[in-house]
Design a protein around this nucleic acid. Structure first.
Lengths: 234, 234
DNA sequence: CATCATATTCGGCAATTGCTGTATGATCCT
DNA sequence: AGGATCATACAGCAATTGCCGAATATGATG
């Protein structure tokens, strides 16, 4: 695990916290992701445990950069003292090695989000599957590039932290190829969104394949840029 | 320019500001890098220009996440409205496409740093060249991997924002190969540091090559991890 | 049911921030 | 020389933060 990786992970965490409308929730996401209790974090920071709880619960709406930096550095220091497994785990998500124009955006939610909320945000129409679920993140993928260029190992990395996410494939023509690609890989997303399709143009093989893998499928005709923008704003 | 790139650049900027001991200086670095005046930024933010100056000058030691996020989003919005050239320019530095174990760390300084300060931070010994210069950043590179694996285009990207930087090559045996590689590429760094060498073991061809390219050369026997840690702390 | 660990709430208060508005100085252009 | 632009310093003040400590709530375990 290189110090460079650790520094970039710290930067990623700090950036995500700072840009969030709910920094407390993002604090908690990272703390629990690192398997650290509030008491342990408070001890490392030499503060009262209620301070950690105050922040995570949103009592402070605009924490200062000093306290954010201290919390991030403490999380990483605790993990380093335990061997650095979480730094490697989350750090590996930073090193995509995948061209920017294949993975167009990727995001992990601080807390579970209703699938209906995501589909609604992009004016999606559900084709099949259960929309009563929640998801933990999404990845927006250039469909053709992903299928043509990614190895199996790279393909698995578009899942970020969790397979309980939505994969949004852009500029698809019938939707068949993305579902075929998912069929032959070990991991299944919660939901697949086919961008650029109307419901009528969905290939008839899509629904049976999706149902075999218990994947919810939706379509959206929103432009790619708008999909990404709306998802980030939701 | 993908929205994903823009979001990751925003995250990078926010993270860097938050983790810095001088957030004001990092605000200024990004603002001037984007060619935006304080007045233009204030207008976009709908605030008084003195607020921007107050922050950049360090009057506020721990700005809140809300104001940091607003400033970062405003810089990016202004650039988008101008065509997005700076987003592409700085965003391209995020998409290394270079394996993490080649570029071990890379950093841009908010303001010029004396070369002697960097060399001192890593217990370096100057072999040749002028140490009275300043630098704007550094890149720590795995010497063997970089030379064996990087294309010419990839090699040029280890320069980050500026060639006025130090390149630190790790685990070198004689130091000849890095200087040869630099000789045959168009850009020259301000300084090359050869990690893992004592002054006696430097190949005799190093100094003549460095002098031809007006590059300062130093050596350090500090461990790689310590080099990266000390540089980040300096 | 008791105990323990973890988490949350909340009162309190000194310190700091967010922001306006005014004053000042430097630089550039006409 | 004068105006415009850019940047900085600073007084002032309402609002908010950083943090402690006590009390309370919740879930797991024996």
């Amino acid at each position: 695990m290189t110090p460079g990786l650790r520094n970039r992970l710290a930067e990623k965490m700090a950036g995500e916290i700072t840009l969030s409308d709910s920094p407390g929730q993002v604090f908690r996401k990272w703390r629990t992701g690192f398997s650290i209790s509030q008491g342990q974090l408070a001890e490392q920071l030499a503060v009262s445990p209620s301070l950690i709880s105050d922040y995570e619960s949103g009592r402070r709406k605009s924490p200062g950069t000093v306290i954010v930096a201290r919390i991030v550095e403490s999380l990483i220091s605790i993990d380093e003292s335990r061997g650095g497994n979480n730094i490697r785990k989350y750090g590996s998500l930073l090193v995509t090695g995948i061209a920017d124009d294949v993975v167009l955006d990727i995001h992990e939610y601080a807390e579970p989000v209703a699938l209906t909320s995501l589909i609604g945000a992009i004016n999606g129409v559900t084709i099949c599957g259960n929309t009563g679920q929640t998801i933990y993140g999404y990845t927006v993928v250039n469909s053709i590039r992903a299928i043509m260029e990614l190895s199996a190992e790279e393909f698995s990395r578009i899942y970020g932290w969790s397979t309980e996410r939505a994969l949004i494939f852009t500029e698809v023509s019938t939707g068949k190829s993305p579902l075929v690609a998912i069929r032959v890989t070990p991991f299944k997303p919660r939901c697949v969104v086919l961008q650029g399709l109307s419901r009528e143009k969905v290939h008839p093989a899509v629904v049976p394949m999706a149902e075999r893998d218990r994947i919810t499928v939706a379509v959206t005709e929103l432009a790619v840029d708008e999909v990404i923008r709306n998802l980030r704003s939701a």
